[in-house]
Computed example of a mutant assay.
Amino acid sequence: MFSDRIEAGQRLGARLAAAGYERPAVYALPRGGVPVALEVARALQAPLDLVLVRKLGLPYQPELALGAVAEGEPPAVYINDRVWRFAGVSDGELEAVKRRELAELERRRARYLEGRERVSATGRTAILVDDGIATGATARVALRALRGARPRWLVLATPVAPPETVEAMAQEADEVVCLATPAPFHAISLYYRRFEQLTDEQVVAYLAEAPVEAPGPPAGEG
């Protein structure tokens, strides 16, 4: 049981700091993952960024998930082939949904990070953080987006997740760090004493507190 996301992040940060990762960069899944990731970034003295993910809903039934898309270069897309075939969605309709959701991801990045540059995962230890993982659907597509940036090592870190999800995520990340793996697993909120919904304003405030990476030495020095 964690008292709140801050305490969970401090405990997770202590575990990760002991690993001695080379050139770590921390990536949060908003909204709930942001305060956890902030404490991890502080523990590692690492820069903090986001990986934003959106559900891809059916064109005529948006609440039913066809898959998900995560921002990245290139964006990572996960499609549930069984739903796609059953729904009869055309390639053109799928592309239209993807474009719309990617535009929304860009809008949210501008809102949360207020124009700050992205933190490149290339050649670094990229650490994806959430406040808890249930099925792993969102984490999976976010990990694939980070993998596309060619990190040296890819870590998924979370305070709590069911053991079967940890096992499944080990196929996507180079390493999974999870403080608690209760079985049977219930809703993530049950493992926190305080688990309030976060607002966009709170997310912006947390991100503003993140460590700033010092610039490297000028060419020819260091």
Rank of each mutant, 00 (worst) to 15 (best):
R82S: 06
S189A: 15
R144P: 03
R31M: 00
A18N: 08
S90W: 00
R140I: 03
M169C: 13
A170F: 08
G123C: 06
R11M: 10
Q45S: 14
R107G: 00
G222N: 14
G123F: 14
E106D: 11
Y191H: 05
A168Q: 14
R140M: 10
R144E: 05
M169Y: 07
P184W: 13
P162C: 05
F86R: 12
T158Y: 08
A25F: 10
L146A: 05
R152V: 05
I133N: 03
S120E: 14
L50Y: 01
G33E: 02
K98A: 04
P24I: 08
G148F: 07
I188D: 02
E167M: 11
D174C: 11
A14E: 13
A87K: 07
E63S: 10
R194G: 10
S120W: 14
L50K: 06
A139I: 02
F86C: 07
L29A: 02
A121T: 06
I188L: 04
E201L: 05
V177L: 12
V177M: 12
A110D: 08
P163R: 08
G216Y: 11
K98M: 12
V129R: 01
P75Q: 08
L154C: 10
V141H: 03
P47Y: 01
L146C: 04
H186K: 14
L113H: 02
E93H: 10
I127V: 12
T125K: 07
R147Q: 11
G115A: 07
V51P: 00
V34Q: 09
E172R: 12
A87N: 08
R144N: 10
V97S: 02
A210R: 11
E201P: 07
R118G: 12
T122F: 14
D81F: 03
V89W: 01
R31S: 01
L146T: 06
A25D: 06
M1K: 11
L102Q: 10
E104V: 05
